[in-house]
């Protein structure tokens, strides 16, 4: 059997905050076309992992490499967040970080920034090239909004959207950067069961239609178990288990971490 093609390859990642070791020797691989979940109790270090690979935090040690098909692998260490995004990693945020005072469409258009070029002169003179690029940007963004079901909100301000819609807008915005790996930080948080179910389908559809791999942090076990190909489990910065949904759900360490000492006793 040939080894699957990794998209993201993180090895020996360590992240210290002063005396606190938030991530301890973490190895995570995401292969092309996979949906991988990263789970763990509160404070396990999941968001910290995202922040490390997207350039918001500088990890204490470790290697983070992204493999874009047809391009040379890129080491993500010490790259600025925007450069990481240019290299094909896009994310959403656990505590929604939309551009609240911009319209829904504008939010997505902003994310087209790194795939477009027009500069100051273009903006002022608004030549044919700039107008065409602008038009392309609007159309692309609109198509993504259709995909996540927000096309009826294009001109609303982001802050006026209901909570679940804001989460979907974050996904559309991340997709607009044309990532090869999409990082979702608790996309179902605050959603009702119906919305969660729709999200489940949305994620699968995005994976197929946009050709992205997905790394997902989630507390909703039903969602995680139903869509993930593989699962990594973190607890207190340690990787305590990994494997298929089935393997993980039967793992003693995992059950202990989730149910705590009460189960132990």
């Amino acid at each position: 059997m040939t080894a699957p093609q990794p998209v993201l390859d993180v090895r020996g990642l360590i992240m210290d905050f002063g005396g606190l070791r938030a991530l301890d020797n973490i190895n995570i691989q995401v292969n092309s076309g996979e949906i991988v979940a990263l789970i763990g109790p509160n404070g396990a270090g999941k968001t910290t992992f995202f922040n490390c690979i997207t350039g918001l935090y500088e990890p204490t040690m470790g290697d983070m490499i992204i493999h874009t098909p047809g391009k040379a692998p890129v080491r993500l260490n010490r790259l600025k967040p925007n450069v990481v995004t240019e290299n094909g990693l896009a994310r959403t945020f656990q505590n929604i970080r939309l551009f609240q005072k911009m319209t829904v469409l504008e939010n997505v258009m902003v994310a087209r920034h790194c795939r477009t070029k027009s500069g100051i002169a273009g903006a002022i003179f608004r030549g044919r090239k700039t107008r065409r690029e602008e038009q392309e940007m609007v159309e692309h963004s609109y198509r993504l909004l259709e995909k996540v079901g927000l096309d009826s909100y294009v001109n609303e301000l982001a802050q006026e959207l209901p909570y679940g819609a804001q989460r979907r807008l974050e996904i559309a915005r991340a997709l607009a950067t044309e990532p090869i790996l999409l990082l979702l930080d608790e996309p179902a948080a605050g959603m009702n069961p119906k919305e969660t179910h729709e999200l489940d389908q949305l994620i699968t559809r995005i994976k197929e239609e946009e050709g992205v791999s997905i790394l997902l942090i989630e507390h909703d076990m039903k969602l995680v178990m139903s869509i993930s190909d593989r699962i990594y489990v973190l607890d207190y910065g340690q990787m305590i288990a990994q494997g298929t949904p089935r393997e993980v759900s039967e793992n003693r360490n995992v059950i202990k971490a989730y149910l705590g000492e009460a189960f132990d006793a």
Partner: peptide, 16 residues
């Protein structure tokens, strides 16, 4: 405007 609204998200969306 994105920079004004949220610096972190702005960078994460690929803006220098």
């Amino acid at each position: 405007i994105a920079l004004r609204e949220d610096e972190v998200a702005c960078q994460a969306m690929g803006i220098d």
